[in-house]
Write a protein that binds this DNA or RNA. Structure first.
Length: 643
RNA sequence: GCCGGAGUAGCUCAGUGGUAGAGCAACGCACUUGUAAUGCGUAGGUCAGGGGUUCAACUCCCCUCUCCGGCUCCA
């Protein structure tokens, strides 16, 4: 017997007996043997103890490999379950995969545990970690496994459901054991529990068994796990960073928006600073649209039920709509609009349309109301009332590709203007709950795909994630700390033109059906503002800052300050002329994240000077006031929009 | 909607069966201020709302509302 093991550097090692990854690593070097997490055999990952019996290309994975981190986290989940079962015998355990930055495990405790209990569980995990218990894989029949897990109803269910993710393959299952703890598992795992050192249990939450709302709820324990303490600490710091950026907290501190119990959940009141910010965003979007082929429309907030029956919303999304308002005159019912499209369609239908008018692009900052489930509301990011930068493009079949191409460029240019430069796309295809012809779905989907390819945008396909009336492209941005947010959406719709009998007169004088494209680029203004707040941590670029400049006075300089202010046309200014110390005025301006502060004292009045402090550059002290004014004007300009 | 946690002054929080507290903010007085919080004083609360237990409830129990962490959902 001859087994040839080929290493990544091309060297070949020969063995006469089946050999484990660990043995190969040991043959290469003792350090590698110590650090080996797993072994990749012909692109598939196995435990270091796995016996390789055929000639293969292999690679030893160490702590440095990305996939090793996933393996560590999955093993951490096992350790968590082991600790939980030690401390709370009789607990039912569900599944425990690795996730981004960590892992979780779902449990059904005999008595619900609380967040405080996590400390004790963590302590137990550390204890088990120190014991360096090896993870050992074995196989057994489904029958034997059912017997082994006879007291564990969730495990039995997984065995019966033949869940390959949980190690059930055909008639056999694989299980991993370390010490007395045994779990149904496909693996692979780190060699022993000693690899799991730098972890922390982070959260406790509820989760439906197998992610199904109709199933009972379990308690899910979340944790994070790393190969070094440094990585763990960095991760924990990142979390604190993210908390600091919370738009709900900053919204309160910077006096941007507020809420009140009397309003009802998911609705917001915009205070002067927030309304300014919002208006800046809206106006920028409006002028971008106005200058690029869109026609503005305005539509009401409620519509008769027949409209929503025709559009299909009542049939498909009634639960997400506010309950109807009854008419006092007759049996009519009115619904708050969850979308603007039916109204824009009515505008399209109000005239006989010619092919010459197409593409017809109707734009509106349209406020919509969706009765989101109470538990999903999350500040501005998920509200019940919000305003979309919404447009509907009515075009011919042949125009789709060009329109989508334009839209992608337009959208990216807009997001770039606001400081989002890393953009990725999702292409969502036909869901199970869909209306319309399959052929139309195929054409629509492929035209979106073509446009993405023509624009050279990286995208992933999200199967079955499309809207009920058509496929869509979603654009995602990465923020300053790497979080991914969905913003723009571009959706093709063959269904609504049919529902509403839309038509246009073609070159051949026939009546043809137009195609509709729904698109919102910033998405919801509320949500977009929330994301901007988190992206900039409240430190907005000059053009977005609600107050761009604060003038701080020292002594009596009123007239001089008025003269300066009148020269700063179109700059959003606040003047602080309170009779208090300069240090306190600076403190207050900084607290409100005012990006530019102009200090004017009696000395400046005499010399025609001023001092300028700016967040992103050095202070300019006692400089000529006119030169300071031009610096302020120049730096406060909004970015030019072009695409 | 479901599981768990929380709600005390405008804000951030302490108090856990026995007279409701602090800092900041607000207001008043003094200080007239040149680069990250001047000092003193005053006022501010149905302890989310409702019901119950108790001699006595912010505190214990029940219901409702809102918020937070998750799950599910997101046209």
């Amino acid at each position: 017997m001859s087994i040839e093991i080929k290493l990544p550097d091309g060297t070949v090692k020969k063995y006469t007996e089946p050999v484990s990854g660990y043995e190969i690593a040991s043959d290469i070097g003792s350090n590698l043997a110590r650090d080996a997490v797993c072994v990749e055999v012909n692109k598939e990952i196995f435990d270091t103890s796995y016996l390789i019996s055929q000639s293969s290309d292999i690679r030893i994975l160490t702590k440095k490999d990305l996939s090793s981190l996933k393996i560590l986290r999955h093993s951490s989940a096992h350790l968590l379950a082991q600790a939980v079962l030690n401390l709370y015998p009789g607990t039912m355990y569900g599944v425990g995969p690795d996730i981004e930055d960590g892992f979780y495990y779902d449990f059904l405790f005999e008595k619900t545990i609380s967040e405080d209990d996590l400390k004790e569980i963590e302590k137990e995990m550390h204890k088990l970690s120190k014991e360096n218990q090896p993870f050992v894989k074995s196989y057994m029949s489904k029958k034997d496994a059912s017997k082994l897990f006879q007291d564990q109803k969730f495990k039995k269910e997984l065995i019966e459901a033949a869940d390959s993710n949980e190690g059930v393959q055909g008639e056999n299952v694989s299980v991993y054991s370390n010490n007395s703890f045994i779990d149904l598992c496909r693996g692979p795992h780190v060699p022993h529990t000693g690899f799991i050192k730098h972890f922390k249990l982070t959260r406790l939450g509820g989760a439906y068994w197998r992610g199904d709302e109709s199933n009972p709820q379990l308690q899910r324990i979340y944790g994070t796990s790393w190969y070094s303490d440094k990585d763990l600490q960095q991760y924990l710091e990142r979390r604190i960073e993210a908390e600091k950026r919370d738009h709900r907290k900053l919204g309160k501190e910077l006096e941007l928006f507020t809420t009140a119990d009397e309003l009802g959940p998911g609705q917001f009141l915009w205070k002067p600073n927030g309304a300014l910010l919002r208006n800046i965003i809206e106006n920028y979007s409006k002028s971008a649209h106005l200058n690029n082929g869109y026609k503005f429309v305005n539509t009401p907030h409620i519509g008769r039920s027949v409209l929503w029956e025709t559009s299909g919303h009542l049939e498909h999304y009634e639960e997400g709509m506010y309950p109807p308002l009854n008419s006092k005159d007759n049996d009519d019912k009115y619904y708050l609009k969850p979308m603007n499209c039916p109204f824009h369609i009515l505008i399209y239908k109000s005239d006989l349309r010619s092919y010459r008018e197409l593409p017809l692009r109707l734009f509106e900052l349209g406020s919509v109301y969706r009765f989101e489930k109470s538990g999903v509301l999350h500040g501005l990011l998920r509200a019940r009332g919000f305003t979309q930068d919404d447009a509907h493009i009515f075009c011919t079949f042949d125009q789709i590709n060009k329109e989508v191409n334009n839209l992608l460029r337009f959208s990216i240019a807009l997001l770039n203007s606001f400081g989002f430069t890393q953009i990725e796309a999702d292409l969502s295809t036909k869901p199970s709950k869909a209306i319309g012809e399959s052929k139309d779905w195929e054409i629509a989907t492929s035209s979106l795909e073509n446009a993405l390819e023509e624009q050279g945008i990286d995208f992933i396909t999200a199967e079955g994630e499309g809207a009920f009336y058509g496929p869509k492209i979603d654009l995602h941005v990465k923020d300053a700390i790497g979080r991914r947010w969905q913003l723009s959406t571009i959706q093709i719709d063959f269904a609504q033109p049919t529902n509403f009998d839309l038509e246009y007169v073609s070159t051949e004088n026939t009546k043809d059906k137009p195609v509709m494209i729904h698109r919102a680029l910033l998405g919801s203004i509320e949500r977009f503002t929330g994301i901007l707040i988190e992206h900039y941590e409240g430190n907005f670029p000059y053009w977005l800052a609600p107050i761009q400049l604060k003038i701080l006075t020292i002594g009596s300089v009123d007239e001089y300050v008025q003269k300066i202010a009148s020269k700063l046309t179109n700059i959003r200014i606040e003047i602080d002329d309170r009779n208090i110390r300069l240090g306190e005025k600076i403190h207050d301006a900084n607290k409100m994240r005012i990006p530019q502060v102009l200090i004017i004292g009696e000395k400046d009045l005499a010399n025609n000077t001023g001092s300028l402090n700016r967040v992103d550059s050095d202070d300019i002290n006692d400089d000529d006031i006119d030169s300071l004014i031009s610096i302020i004007k120049e730096s406060s300009k909004e970015p030019k929009f072009s695409f």
